[in-house]
Amino acid sequence: MIVIDSGPLIAALNIRDRYHEACARLLQTHPEPLIVPATVWIYCLKWSAITSNTFQGAR
């Protein structure tokens, strides 16, 4: 089990982020549960609303 912060989530959603591919792959293939605190979800939602032109959504 891993507690995940906003960095990997935002990188996975932002196709322009230099770590996009690695983070998206991690989120799709990690064999154990990933715990995302509520405050991290809120931050990511706010980020996606502000930068909707690069927001792709989860694949």
Rank of each mutant, 00 (worst) to 15 (best):
residue 15 I to S: 10
residue 4 I to F: 07
residue 56 Q to S: 15
residue 15 I to R: 14
residue 58 A to H: 06
residue 17 D to P: 13
residue 32 E to Y: 12
residue 41 W to Y: 14
residue 26 L to K: 07
residue 29 T to A: 08
residue 24 A to W: 01
residue 1 M to F: 03
residue 37 P to C: 10
residue 9 L to Q: 00
residue 29 T to F: 05
residue 52 S to W: 06
residue 52 S to V: 03
residue 50 I to R: 12
residue 12 A to F: 01
residue 17 D to N: 11
residue 12 A to G: 04
residue 7 G to S: 10
residue 17 D to E: 05
residue 42 I to C: 08
residue 56 Q to G: 09
residue 10 I to V: 09
residue 9 L to S: 08
residue 17 D to M: 01
residue 37 P to M: 03
residue 15 I to W: 13
residue 46 K to R: 12
residue 19 Y to N: 06
residue 53 N to W: 08
residue 24 A to G: 04
residue 59 R to K: 13
residue 2 I to Q: 03
residue 56 Q to W: 06
residue 8 P to T: 05
residue 49 A to W: 10
residue 36 V to E: 07
residue 22 A to G: 11
residue 28 Q to H: 00
residue 52 S to H: 08
residue 25 R to Y: 08
residue 50 I to N: 12
residue 22 A to Q: 10
residue 8 P to C: 06
residue 25 R to V: 02
residue 2 I to W: 09
residue 12 A to R: 01
residue 51 T to W: 10
residue 46 K to G: 15
residue 58 A to I: 13
residue 45 L to N: 14
residue 35 I to G: 12
residue 50 I to G: 15
residue 27 L to W: 00
residue 52 S to T: 02
residue 48 S to K: 10
residue 38 A to R: 11
residue 46 K to L: 11
residue 35 I to E: 14
residue 58 A to S: 13
residue 41 W to H: 14
residue 7 G to N: 15
residue 50 I to S: 09
residue 41 W to L: 12
residue 18 R to A: 15
residue 23 C to D: 03
residue 53 N to Q: 04
residue 59 R to G: 13
residue 40 V to C: 13
residue 36 V to N: 10
residue 53 N to V: 07
residue 59 R to I: 08
